[in-house]
Amino acid sequence: MSLFPVGLQHYLALSVILFALGILTVILRRNLLIILMGIELMLNAGNVAILAFSKFNAAMSGQVYVLLTMTVAAAEAAVGLAILIALFRTRKTVNADEATYLRW
């Protein structure tokens, strides 16, 4: 994989690395805020891949998808943060390790 010229390959590689970093964030961090950020990272990685494909195929519909993804991301962040606030209010914590009430 040569450095130049930058093509679809490079964008996809970036997308995969970003996605893996997002996964790691979600898995490794315990702060629920940062876990939410990890999710946003993964969504962004996806967006990058979609837009790269869109450009490569000269297909505008990809950009619409990205717009929809962003809407979902915004909604998800809003709801996630609301849950977080509710959790903090009742349990005084945002630590994922301590919020394990829904289990056997």
């Binding site: 994989m1 093509g7 679809l8 390959q9 450009k55 490569f56």
Partner: peptide, 11 residues
């Protein structure tokens, strides 16, 4: 595999 098989350049 998806990355490696992709075309090098933007069309």
């Amino acid at each position: 595999p998806g990355v490696r098989g992709a075309p090098r350049a933007i069309s």
